[in-house]
Write a protein that binds this DNA or RNA. Structure first.
Lengths: 140, 140
DNA sequence: CTTGCACCTCTAGTCGCTAGAGGATGTAGG
DNA sequence: CCTACATCCTCTAGCGACTAGAGGTGCAAG
């Protein structure tokens, strides 16, 4: 197993160099060994960890949730109930966010459609913003 | 026109007291007159501004965009092309975000469904996170 | 041997607030 | 008039998850 520099790890994992260092700083990633010249030198296994973190971040999991998921991964005998709970919580969040964004989308569409491209005092965008009562969708 | 304390303005606009002061600090809201004892005293017109800002924030507009929209509102003779452009840009953002969240939702659902509630080493949640290749939806 | 890139640490900045310290003001009741 | 208490004031620091930059060292190629 050959050692990998931080730059190479970044390239292979898709996590930026400063972000890798940041993850190490907050204890999400354990500190790798160092070269003679004090440079971080990673092993292939660390790339899996980075990929895991990256994927989880892309799915919108918070650092703390990822910390828990990583602990779970290290302990394969454990029940996966916590992992399931974390994923389910995130799913509910995502569903709520989608609903709220759909409402926003509808309202923005109305604003944009109503805009006659004339002067500001006839602009529906400004008008709707100024008067919440003009929202068709009372989502907020 | 009766003067309004910051607390009353907060109650009526739904924007929290520290947030109002913050908006003043960053120049989004002009500084109101002060009472004898140096307390902020708002006029009814200021409530409209606050409501405008609040509504725009709820729609996810950034502070800088809101700054521009407020300038436009102050200048009713101007063309509303900029307002339109800002709203359209926001709409596109929202649409992209919805698409990406829908992909996420699908992936999370797969993870959660696949979880047999057994041990971690058979948990699909952990497994999928660890191996991006197992994503059904190559959204990222 | 020098050039130039990648690496190191450290601090500070981003966004949009929010929390808290420590003190002044305003108001209602006694 | 005094006291109690809510509300106000300013100021600084903190949140999450990075990102940017300064100022310096390591390393490999030509």
């Amino acid at each position: 197993m050959k050692k990998i520099t931080i730059g190479e790890a970044a390239r292979q994992s898709g996590v930026k160099v400063p972000t890798i260092r940041y993850y190490e700083g907050i204890g999400l990633l354990s500190a790798p060994s160092r070269s003679e010249g004090n440079q971080r030198s990673y092993e292939p296994a660390d790339l899996n960890r980075l990929a895991f973190i990256r994927h989880a971040r892309e799915l919108g999991f918070e650092i703390d949730a990822i910390r828990t998921l990583l602990h779970l991964q290290d302990d394969p005998d454990q029940s996966c109930a916590s992992a399931d709970a974390i994923a389910k919580a995130r799913l509910i969040e995502v569903e709520q966010r989608i609903r709220s964004l759909n409402a926003l989308k509808a309202e923005l569409e109305q604003m944009v459609e109503g805009c006659g491209h004339g002067r500001v005092d006839q602009c529906r965008v400004i008008e709707v913003l100024a008067d919440h009562g003009k929202c068709a969708h009372p989502h907020h």
